[in-house]
Simulated scan of single mutants.
Amino acid sequence: MPVTDVITDPEALTMTLTADFAAPVERLWEAFTDPRQLERFWGPPGWPATFTSFDFTPGGRADYHLTSPRGEKSYGWWEFLSISQPAAFEVLDVFADEKGAPDTDLPDARMTFAFDATADGSRLQSVTYFSSADALEQVVAMGMVEGLTMAVNQLDRVLEGLRAYAAGKGTQTEILDDTHVRITRLIDGPIDLVWRAHQEPELIRQWLLGPDGWRMSVCEVDGRVGGAYRYEWEPLEGTEGERFGFDGETLLIEPPHRAVTTEHMTGTDFPSTLNDLSLYEEDGATLITLVIEYPDAQTRDIVLATGMTDGMEASYARLEGVLAGV
């Protein structure tokens, strides 16, 4: 992971993040100063950022919000205090309400971003300066250390480009913490088709099958917020296994980029998971990212031990074949 250290210093009233990247300083600078690239990593998994303005000049302002899997929004803005391209920039980071007014219940802070060349690429050092020990303690208690670490650890895929980052690697599963797992798979196809393949029953039936030997006998999808879906599978003749299915509800939908649903094993009292699907296209390929939230680490480990990743890879490989014929 790129982040090598996050240090909080109550005496100096600072939090310092250090991260190393196999990319030149100029490329790292570009990722932090282009709002469309910044959106791809500024915000931890499950809380992606949207920048609605970005005036990258001294005295200029960047407005943004983070959107949770359930659609809640957290607002903020940066005021650019100084810029020294491509070595550093400094901002005032302010929590805000939906109209952009500062949220006086949460502390603002001064943040510096410094970019230095290393033997293997470049290094980011970001220092956040707080006005008091209470302010530092407040944001640490809110999970800022963990959130910032997970956010910056997403930057590799932006710097490398999707094909270099994920092509040929198949389905990859990463454990993010006790309750969150991130699954990624690059699909050779445009985002609109990949989105349709996740929303249209006639396409879903062709690829979402897991290992060979199964058929999808039920596929009902209401992709509206609050709408329900239901999938069921049954074994073909000669395949061992019992009929099973999943049902759930759509919580958030932003075509063709993001859909969040619950997932529950039909006919059981197992707890539901939260499935946060996002799509991003680059150079004719689409990266599927699925962040799954489990109720606890034990449930997470039980599900992963079923061979879930292998089953998903079989489905995604089948998906590429389906898209080639659409």
Rank of each mutant, 00 (worst) to 15 (best):
D269C: 15
A314L: 05
W78N: 14
L186T: 09
D222Y: 08
W78V: 03
P69G: 06
S131E: 13
L252Q: 10
Q85K: 12
P271I: 09
V6H: 14
S272L: 04
A101V: 10
T16K: 15
E160H: 11
V291N: 02
R215C: 08
L136E: 00
T266M: 03
T112N: 02
V94E: 10
L287Q: 03
V158K: 13
G210W: 08
A197L: 07
F32K: 03
M150N: 06
G311V: 00
V94L: 01
T112G: 13
R258G: 03
W42Q: 01
D9L: 04
A96N: 00
G245H: 09
L92Q: 13
G245E: 08
Y280R: 05
F80S: 14
P190W: 01
T4F: 04
E220N: 12
R318Q: 12
E137H: 15
G121H: 00
D192S: 07
G59M: 05
P102A: 09
I183Y: 01
Y64F: 10
F244V: 05
P35F: 12
Q172E: 13
V291P: 00
V91I: 15
D276I: 04
P48Q: 09
A197N: 01
R224C: 11
E202L: 05
E232P: 00
F244Y: 11
R243C: 02
E98K: 14
K73N: 03
D276R: 08
C219L: 04
A119Q: 15
S217K: 08
T306S: 15
A22M: 07
R300D: 13
M142N: 08
E313D: 13
D116H: 09
M111T: 12
M142R: 05
R258L: 06
M142Y: 07
G170F: 00
D296I: 14
W29V: 00
I288K: 01
D301N: 14
H257P: 01
V145I: 04
P35G: 07
F21W: 06
T8Q: 15
L208G: 04
A23L: 05
P201I: 02
A297I: 06
V158N: 06
A119T: 06
D55Q: 09
G267V: 01
G227E: 11
A19I: 05
V158R: 06
V6S: 10
V158G: 08
H180I: 08
S278H: 08
F95H: 12
P44C: 04
Y231A: 00
G238L: 10
L155V: 02
P58M: 03
L155K: 10
V152L: 05
P44Q: 04
G227L: 04
M312S: 07
W47M: 08
P45H: 15
D55R: 12
T67K: 10
E240Q: 06
K169E: 09
S68N: 05
T50G: 04
D34E: 15
W47S: 03
Q37C: 03
G284N: 07
S68C: 07
I292F: 04
E320G: 03
E263W: 03
